[in-house]
Design a protein around this nucleic acid. Structure first.
Lengths: 338, 338
DNA sequence: CTGAAAGCGCTTACAG
DNA sequence: CTGAAAGCGCTTACAG
């Protein structure tokens, strides 16, 4: 497919010829081993590399060594701010360790996710990081035996698979407890669709209410999107017995709730107080600024990369649980500048 | 680096052995050519492939054929909503044509961008799509001769390089003219830092004012970010002679301007009307919804992918100019629902 | 219709 | 310290 008239790329043989050495020596210089090279010879080789603009052919290296120095990252949607922050963080963490990242979007579809995992793994990636769209990933058929794999941002421990995720139970508890501490006695929940198990964010909300001696507020289940939050907001706050506050399971949904409240003519936080979950950059710039339970995206990504690069495929598995942190804006009713 | 105890991946030789044919025949079946295979034989091979779970080693294929079926995409920042929408679109467009995408962030740094381009190109990508951080990319030293390359989202024609970009002059003109048509006679500009040339969005704003018989409004130059827009907003609207309306060069900046106006106690659109540029999903959900000049991101990405895949490295170059479209929200003062 | 063989560009054990 | 050679897994021209 590449242009037939294009000049052939510079190979190790060209460098060897130019420097008057064997091809082995070129490799020894490039990798600084495994055999020693006389410094004068090495200097000649380095010169040739510079002059000719030689860079090793990564495909040949991958074929020969069995390692591509690439990681695969399968993500639900790259155009969702939360996921794009995660993708950026994965790219940073991988880059810091000398790895490039092959990113692939599953568009939130389980079948496509499986497809992308297989296709990425055929590219000889050294590891696979998957933000699965499945709540409890059915991964028995997915895994390429011997390919290190880590699930990123799972809210549950997934037996037999390495996984990294936030402590959502604790985070949701903290966010909801904050609303309780403001004195609100009626606190609703807008929550994304989970699988058969109860979402830990819902569990955390419920626990916090009970711990605070507050009755369960209304629940609206919806998509994890701005549009989903908007629909949920109209439903929850268009009703006569609207709650005084709400905990929302993602920033994107909270942005939709804000729009709904705006249209309904309700003010935040004086009519309705909000705490959401994620801590994206977008939440820092809503009006008013969202109080939100921040997922430590950079730490999660780094943990996932480290885990996948150090993984033993010997049946051991680990769960890296990272802590969430409540970041106060003005939407909860706190007396902050914004 | 891969696990030493991991089972060796299935190769073509395993399939051949299992099916009782030569390795050549396996390839013929996989690719449906170039030599014919008896249907009974082909069926046996397909069976073996299925049973063993064989997938061709992409590194070996890339080495042998010179084509990796991968495209490289170098992007300033993956966690910026506009760029993540572009990245998603590039992924879609490439996937539809059978290509995976190696994404790499330059973090807005020209030196790093060069570095990423070189590293991606060493991976035998079949083409390189670059959203350059340079206003007028100095690419003479960057290009890998023979590697098809396309610049994405350049606002200028870049001689000697294939490029794809939006018709920003026309788009900015249309957005500003819309403000003029609302009757506003004082229309400022918040514009990102460009290079030495005048940004076409600034030019379009200026042309529209002059065409409409309106005096030039104040200009504030700032970063292409929410924080940049916020600072610009405080400066432009905290002053006594604030303009009645403003054209903002990106949605992210407009989000920052909205925050500044919120803090200043000014209402949109009754005190200040806004039209911005980009048309990201985030702009659809600000309060009020931003009126914005939408870049057709999917079309741009598709054009860039098509161009890079069809490129002749024969010295010809093209510019694909895609049209922008004004999407009306409520921030301009239009009487729409939101 | 089928198969043996060359060669893509590397790394590295081995011999000198 | 240096180099000739094997082999990673493929594709495809060539021979049968």
């Amino acid at each position: 497919m590449s242009n037939p008239s294009s000049p052939r790329a510079v190979t190790r043989a060209d460098v060897a010829r130019y420097a008057g050495v064997s091809t082995s020596v070129v490799s020894y210089v490039v990798h600084d081993g495994p055999r020693p090279v006389a410094s004068a010879t090495a200097a000649r080789v380095r010169d040739a590399i510079r002059v000719l603009g030689y860079r090793p052919n990564a495909s040949a290296q991958a074929l020969r060594t069995g390692s591509s120095k690439m990681l695969g990252f399968v993500v639900p949607e790259l155009d969702n701010p939360f996921w794009s922050e995660v993708a950026d963080a994965v790219g940073h963490a991988a880059g810091a360790r000398g790895y490039d990242v092959l990113m692939s979007s599953s568009h939130g579809d389980a079948a496509l996710e499986r497809d992308r995992m297989r296709s990425v793994s055929a590219r000889q990636v050294d590891g696979l990081i998957v933000a699965s769209v499945m709540t409890r990933p059915d991964l028995s058929t997915l895994v390429d035996p011997g390919l290190p794999m880590v699930l990123l941002n799972t809210f549950f421990e997934v037996p037999e698979f390495a996984s990294t995720g936030v402590d959502a139970l604790r985070g949701a508890h903290e966010g909801t407890t904050h609303l309780v501490s403001h004195g609100y006695r009626s606190i609703g929940l807008v929550i994304g669709h989970a699988g058969s198990d109860m979402d830990l964010r819902e569990q955390g909300w419920q626990n916090a209410l009970r711990d605070g001696g507050v009755q369960d507020g209304p629940i609206v289940r919806t998509d994890f999107s701005r549009a989903g939050g908007y629909a949920a907001g109209l439903r929850m706050f268009g009703a006569p017995n609207r709650p005084r506050a709400v905990f929302v399971s993602s920033d994107m949904q909270a942005v939709g709730v804000l729009r709904a409240l705006y249209e309904l003519g309700l003010s935040v936080p004086s009519d309705v107080a909000i705490v959401s979950f994620d801590g994206t950059a977008e939440a820092d710039f809503t009006n008013p600024q969202l109080s939100t339970v921040r997922q430590p995206v950079a730490a999660m990504a780094a943990a996932a990369v480290d885990r996948v690069l150090s993984q033993e495929a010997d049946g051991q598995w680990h769960r890296d649980l990272v802590p969430a942190e409540l970041v106060l804006g003005a939407s909860c009713g706190c007396d902050v500048r914004r």
